[in-house]
């Protein structure tokens, strides 16, 4: 076995059969690379040598190949770069357009929603309006009103305002003499600046419109309900009719036409208001500037755009 190695090395300098074992028996053949050697490649045993190509010619052909291949690759790379540059040009023209819009005062509006819990009477008009406007299926809600009842014995009860208010079969059963204090808190999507629901969406179906409204793209939503779990305010649900995530859109189809959201339009006491934050003359901006306000779960850093006038009791989350 030991004698075989030099012969092998002469025939194929880099045959790749350095281990020796298993190759020795075939090392006497011309090619030095019989079956079972596992040395199918390698310049030393290239078929070119067998066909009588000199080493210089062989190297030359390799150089030729590399030159041609690299020129092809360079072409491909340059095409990619050029198209990339074209895209960059497009996006820069977009930026110019955006700048021009800003100069024309066409910057997308900044909205805020304001709730005055002191004014809410629990009539439930907003709930019916929302369901009618947005085709929300029975048993689900994009907005709801919670009632907090602090009883004199210290317990706090939370219930939901029925859609038609406390009439007919939903007549209120609590007696005023048992109750220490009680109030209504309307809830809806907070349209967070840093929305957790938006971050977790795997299909980019949860989107933030240029106006800052959190929306769901019905085409891309796969109904995985990650966003339903991610929302700290519990405003999302899977719509059983469309199997998409569904949520309050601030009536996007209304506000983009200059109308108010349906719930705001419906409220008889003005507990809900909606308006632009970037307009110093808007009612919402004036109130937010003049009065203290709070948001839900501020410690989560979601920066909600739904504000409650005054401080909220600690039970409200």
């Amino acid at each position: 076995m030991n004698q075989d190695f030099p012969i092998l090395n002469i025939v194929g300098s880099d045959s790749g059969c350095g281990s020796g074992s298993g190759c020795g028996s075939q090392s006497n053949s011309d090619s030095g690379c019989g079956s079972g050697c596992g040395c199918s490649s390698g310049p030393g045993v290239d078929s070119g040598l067998v066909e009588g190509l000199s080493e210089a010619e062989f190297l030359n052909s390799r150089r030729k190949f590399l030159e041609q291949a690299s020129s092809v690759m360079l072409g491909a790379v340059s095409v990619t770069l050029l198209s990339g540059a074209a895209v960059e040009n497009e996006s820069s023209s977009d930026a110019d357009l955006a700048d021009a819009n800003e100069a024309n005062g066409e910057k997308p509006p900044v909205y805020a929603f304001l709730v005055d819990t002191e004014k809410c009477t629990g009539a439930g008009k907003c709930l019916t309006a929302c369901r009618e406007e947005n085709n929300v299926p029975e048993g689900y809600a994009r907005t709801w009103v919670e009632r907090y009842i602090h009883l004199k014995d210290g317990t706090v009860i939370v219930d939901k305002v029925p859609e038609t208010g406390y009439v007919d079969e939903n007549k209120d059963t609590y007696k005023p003499e048992d109750v220490e204090r009680s109030y209504f808190v309307p809830k809806l999507c907070n349209h967070c600046e840093d929305a957790p629901c938006n971050q977790v969406c795997p299909t980019h179906a949860s989107i933030t419109s240029p106006e800052g409204v959190e929306l769901v793209d019905p085409d891309l939503c796969i109904g995985c309900s990650y966003c339903v779990q991610a929302c700290p305010y519990g405003v999302r649900f899977i719509n059983p009719e469309t199997n998409n995530a569904d949520k309050c859109t601030w009536c996007y189809h209304r506000i983009t036409k200059g109308e108010q959201p349906a719930c705001v339009e419906a409220c008889p006491t003005g507990a809900r208001s909606f308006g632009r934050l970037d307009d110093p003359n808007s009612e919402v901006r004036k109130i937010l500037d003049a009065m203290p306000s709070s948001v839900l779960k501020e410690h989560l850093g979601t920066h909600p755009k739904l504000h409650y006038i005054g401080g909220l009791p600690k039970e409200v989350v």
Binding site: N135, N198, C201, A205, P210, P218, L220, H253
Partner: peptide, 22 residues
């Protein structure tokens, strides 16, 4: 958007919901 690109046409579709009317 705040968290990456999205389908811009979705905004126009949502402006028409529900069933194109207020």
């Amino acid at each position: 958007g705040r968290y990456g690109p999205y389908r811009a046409a979705a905004l126009d579709e949502l402006k028409l919901q529900p069933e194109g009317s207020i």
